[in-house]
Write a protein that binds this DNA or RNA. Structure first.
Lengths: 357, 357
DNA sequence: CCGCATTCCGTAAACGTTTACAGACGATGA
DNA sequence: TCATCGTCTGTAAACGTTTACGGAATGCGG
């Protein structure tokens, strides 16, 4: 089959022979440099007949540009990363770059590997969402042989282009919203505090409560992980301990789905008895019943911003490292906004015209 | 910033100079070919001090291998493609290949482009999920200068490695299930019939009805598109026309979600009054309320199979084109199986330990 | 008919590797 | 001591491009 067809394709040399010119002329024609009409014609004809296609590897070697950019994150399955990817891809593509995808499976060593492999020069740049930023990361960043854009928090003074979310403001939006709805016993279901998001969201919750004049009550906080089942269990415990809770701020959408499961099982109405807010505004938020109010941290925007920063660097931007912060947005749906809406929800952007056959 | 650090990295020449040997020796040491101990030591030392990293582009040029494989589909946002991607990526990675991602945005010309660009030899192979297979596709496939694996239906006799789902059996599983539950007025909500999935699923529905001895009734079939809102509208029309429908076979999960919306609004209980089955078994199926029974067409398995076929080709497999068909699976959840379950649903595989900050 | 500017093209070097080949060298046996 | 062998290493070519440089050809004015 195809394996046998892999006979060496034509090169610039083949064309030169057939057209009776030198390889330099062929190259010039192919690159649109000024050349006599007659030569152009001959070369084009030969190239067409041979079905010539430029060899990208050889070009890259000479030009020191691969026209590839890498994107590295823990797991494409995570909707937040996916949203970034979906923005990054078209921006790069339109600018003539290919996208090399690295999934590090949440293994820090893999992230370091990716940074190290920049030295192989198989890409012109790297956009990375690190899980956490270790000393090793910082060292490799300093030594990086190609431009890097980091999405996520980095220590002050790190000399690297950086795009951030603002979960502090995000949590505040949600708490303000709940407070405005008259809720006064607002619980928080968080993930582990030793993760960057967990810590940030926990602190933001406390601060936002203060902002609306509510006391911080440890009993109202329950820690689990970032998954649905454990989120549900955490909510069950909280309900036991604080039966009069009237709202739940959940650290991500999966936790919030778990909360809906448990509240339903416990016979609490959402949002009448307990209002629920999720975080990340994933597709799941629109799909659940009742649909879930959720704080969008602008994953898509962050992806786009990162891609644009990268392009600027690649186009010779040599300035100081830049920091872009993306504003969060509260998307209000049925889980806080009164009666669950019963008409058609907004289009989910998840599926395309055709699903795979 | 980094831009200034991009001074040319060390090459094999730099090492040769510093170690006082020839570049051939350096290359030999770096590749582990037999060399005198003393030389090995000197070269290693020099390489370490210089922080040398092999240039992937130059290697590729010489070895005619890029260690990259491309994956092309319409849209990463589609959960089916995403499921494939998530399997393909680790298989390739473990085998030492990088993944280049192409999103064609459902534009056929883009797909042709991707096939054409194989001639640039920037990848060693291509895994592709075409929207539909045109004449142009077939021509390019024949002329392809690297191994290609197609996921999806291709015309008989196309000489290409191929992985397929079996939506016919999939639909049959669902219809048999509904029939066994005592449903006799089973409607179908389908997408456009001029798409490959639409046509296949429509025909399979008719055939499966026959299989359980039910008549095919045109009134029970409603065509819309593959999205949620339109799916809902289609269901509303069907309900108007055939009020006694007692089950709905939906051509994908989004349509099924639309069905749930409309059934709820119409005061029909799911599954007591109307049972609903979706297709593709996306994350949304587990997240919805009631959770959605869905036919899995094995996207993940298809991805894995495709990646494995590709690796075999790359490792020199020269045999006949191969065909792998993946068996479908019916995942029964609350929307057909009696009372909606109220305990914690199975873990969704969507999220990871840490969500993006 | 010569000198010169202009236009077009070919030669060759370079990008950073791998590798075939042959030379240098030390050791071995006669 | 010399031929022979084996081990190790260096030289150079090759992968497929791009591009600096200089030479050939042409046209023009004097």
């Amino acid at each position: 089959m195809k394996g046998t067809t892999l006979a060496d394709g034509p090169t610039i040399n083949t064309i030169a022979e057939r057209a009776g010119v030198s390889i330099a002329s062929v190259s010039r024609v192919l690159n649109g440099l000024p050349t006599r009409q007659e030569t152009v014609r001959k070369v084009m004809a030969a190239a067409d007949e041979l079905g010539y296609v430029r060899n990208a590897v050889a070009r890259s070697l000479k030009s020191r540009r691969t026209h590839q950019v890498a994107f590295a994150m823990a797991d494409v399955g995570n909707p937040a990363y996916l949203a970034m990817l979906r923005q990054i891809q078209p921006v790069l593509k339109d600018a003539g770059y290919r996208l090399v995808l690295h999934s590090t499976d949440a293994v820090v060593a893999d992230e370091i590997d990716v940074l190290h492999s920049l030295g192989e020069r198989y890409v012109d740049g790297l956009i990375m969402v690190p899980l956490r930023v270790t000393e090793a990361h910082l060292e490799m960043l300093d030594a990086a042989r190609a431009p890097v854009v980091i999405i996520g928090q980095v220590p002050e003074g790190t000399r690297v282009d950086n795009v951030r979310a603002d979960s502090r403001t995000g949590v505040k939006l949600a708490i303000d919203h709940l407070h405005a709805l008259g809720r006064r016993r607002i619980g928080m279901i968080n993930g582990p505090l030793d993760t960057v998001p967990g810590a940030a969201r926990g602190a933001a919750y406390r601060e936002a409560l203060g902002g609306v004049g509510l006391p911080y009550d440890e009993d109202l906080v329950q820690i689990g992980d970032f998954y649905r089942a454990e989120g549900g269990r955490a909510v069950a415990e909280l309900l036991d301990r604080v039966p009069d809770v009237d709202a739940l701020m959940c650290a991500n959408d999966l936790i919030a789905l778990g909360a809906l499961d448990v509240l339903r099982a416990a016979g609490r109405r959402v949002p009448e008895d307990v209002a629920v807010v999720g975080m990340d505004d994933t597709d799941l938020a629109a799909a659940s019943w009742p649909s879930l109010s959720s704080v969008s941290l602008g994953s898509a925007e962050r992806g786009r911003a990162a891609a644009e920063l990268m392009l600027e660097r690649l186009q010779g931007g040599d300035g100081e490292p830049r920091l872009v912060t993306v504003a969060p947005r509260l998307v209000v749906r049925a889980s806080t906004a009164g009666a669950p809406v019963a008409d058609f929800p907004a289009e989910s952007r998840t599926d395309r015209k055709e699903s795979a056959e």
